[in-house]
Each structure stands twice: as C-alpha cells, then as structure tokens.
Amino acid sequence: MTITDSPVNNGVNVQALLGAREALSAAPEAAEFTWRASCTWRNGTHSHSTVAGFTGLGAEQQHRSTYEFDVDHPECFASEDNGATPVEYVLVALVGCLTAGVASVAQHRGIQLRSVTATVDGQMNVLGILGADPDIRNGFEEITVRFAIDADASREDLQALIAQSQKRSAAFDIVANPTKVLVELA
C-alpha cells in the first residue's frame, strides 16, 4: 500500500515530512533550528513564559500566535499555584512529543487511529530538591508513560508504534539522555 492511495488519515502529512527530510539532507544548514522561550518572574515562585519565534530553515520563523505559560508551585509548597510546576511541563512535553510520534508513525505505516490517550507519571522524592538527602537526585527517579490506543492494528504493531515514536522523539531523547546545559548571567 502506498501512502498516496492510502485511505488512512491521522491528519499527518507524511509526504511533506518525507519531502522535508530529503530537502534538508541536501541543504543541511537549513536543518539547524534554535527553539526559544522567554521568561519573566512575577512573584514568589510564579513566572510567566512565552513562546513565539524560533529559527529554522535558514530564517526567523513565527508561531501563528504567542503561546503563554504560567509556572508556579502548588499550595502545599506554600505557593499560590498560578500554574503547573516546571516538572509537569516536562511531562507534558514528553507525552506530547510521543503522541505526535505515534500519529506520524501510524500514518507512515498505514495504521488508522481511532483514539489515542496517554497518562504520564513522574516519581520524585522531594528530599532531593529540599537538600535534605544528598543521595536523592533532584529530578525524576522514573517516568512512566502509558498509552491506550484504539486502532486497526495488532497489539504487536502498536508495541512497534510506541517503540518507534520513542526512537524518533526529541523530548524523549532530552529526558532520557544527558544534555549539556549552560546557565549564564547576561
């Protein structure tokens, strides 16, 4: 079954993605992207971040609109809970990236999706961030993502689908592998 006469429609333009892969392989400079966000402190643990522009395809690009994110901590940490915690945004990024991957890979493999839902849990012992136990790390000890997928495919095919979406996921790579991080004073 070729993609063009496939009746499967998950709303992913696989032809465009494959075209982009070919075009960017030929013009590697255009494949260098820089993603950006900016953040302003409001009060207490509350901050406000926006995402609007990014660099890629050799030019400055704009989202259709500016996206806004309030970050805070819950009341049990003596905060005002004006938004999700930073670590919850990490979970949102991870599961959002994997879900996009599931849809794209399913389209490419001719699998019609009827529904995809996922839950993601991150386990954390907060003695780490409180500096109370040097043997406990600050970040998640473990993250578990559970997908429920209703689709015209065998369980084995769905296993392969989520495996491939992890393999091609930027957020999964960022979370699972060490990344060099520089924090400087402007």
Binding site: Q159, A160, A163, Q164, Q166, K167, F172, D173, V175, A176, N177, P178, K180
Partner: peptide, 23 residues
C-alpha cells in the same frame, strides 16, 4: 551519553533500545 567530573552518565532509554532490537 556523557562523562561529567569523572562520572559516566548512561541513557535511560535502554528498555526501548532493547524493545526495538527484539522487534
């Protein structure tokens, strides 16, 4: 993945790497 201050850091994606190889 990295070696920082003499500490080697390994990927947390091992389970998926193995699942893909089995598949």
């Amino acid at each position: 993945g990295r070696i920082t201050d003499g500490v080697a850091q390994f990927s947390g994606a091992l389970a998926n790497t193995c699942a893909l190889a089995d598949l």
